[in-house]
């Protein structure tokens, strides 16, 4: 197997994600902006903010994956890069996975890394839990990006595809959102939640690349 195209796809996607203006700061600004609106919208009561904080961060992660993924395959389909990827002979699923991973590194991981700061803004107690939560956010957002990637690949040739991605990907985000929330709130049935979150993310990483590959072959026709 020729791995060079896969590495090239990874670098291309990573460079694109960083180069488009402010790089990783742009999605970070999006997350920060969305998060800052919440106390203004629902009131500044500390106990309320502490309760909704983790959920708001999950929602912001899901939204930012949808926003940044809109162009991930669309540009390739428009300028012919996609046809070249298909001709390299490297497995399309691996190329799609590499591009998605690059986007997550540029737009998903920085948000997860910033999550302790945001949690503090939402009046969370400063503790090592915040670092554990950082790991959960990183893990969960990876699943968001892979399922969002399926939506992006399916709508690669659709104008205003961004709206389509969200309605396609929303039901697929459900397990991650539920396991993630359970793992943090520690309610009933939350004992295995971090493991279930990891399992559902691995499931996304295993299945989504093949769906993306099938969708991209369609987009190239």
């Amino acid at each position: 197997m020729n791995a060079a195209p896969i590495w090239a796809a990874f670098r291309q996607a990573f460079a694109e994600a960083w180069a488009g203006g402010a790089g990783a700061l742009l999605p970070l600004g999006f997350l920060g902006g969305a998060a800052v609106l919440v106390p203004l919208g629902i009131g500044t009561e500390s106990s309320i903010l502490r309760a909704v904080g983790p959920g708001i961060i999950w929602v912001a992660l899901a939204l930012s994956s949808l926003v940044t993924l809109e162009r991930i395959f669309q540009a390739d389909a428009e300028d012919g890069t996609l046809d070249l990827w298909l001709q390299t002979g490297a497995p399309m699923a691996a190329i799609a996975a590499a591009k998605t991973l690059a986007h997550w590194l540029a737009a998903g991981l920085p948000l997860a890394l910033a999550s302790p700061l945001l949690a503090l803004m939402f009046q969370a107690q400063a503790s090592l839990d915040l670092i554990a939560h950082l790991g959960l956010y990183a893990l969960g957002s990876l699943a968001f990006f892979f399922w969002g990637g399926v939506g992006a690949a399916l709508s690669a040739t659709v104008r205003r595809g961004g709206l389509l991605i969200s309605i396609i990907a929303l039901p697929l985000y459900v397990p991650t959102a539920i396991f993630g929330a359970l793992a943090m709130t520690g309610g009933i049935g939350s004992d295995g939640a971090p493991m279930l979150l990891a399992a559902s993310t691995l499931f996304a990483c295993a299945v989504a690349p093949y769906a993306m590959a099938a969708a991209l072959r369609l987009a190239a026709d």
């Binding site: 399926v150 399916l154 040739t157 396609i168 039901p171 697929l172 459900v174 397990p175 539920i178 396991f179 359970l182 049935g189 939640a193 279930l196 559902s200 499931f203 299945v207 989504a208 769906a211 099938a214 969708a215 369609l218 026709d221």
Partner: peptide
Amino acid sequence: KAARAGAILAMVGAINVPLIKFSVDL
């Protein structure tokens, strides 16, 4: 194209239904 894209999405959805069901069952 509609047929192909629809089929891919329906199949991805179908393999996710058990997972969605399990997660909300918690």
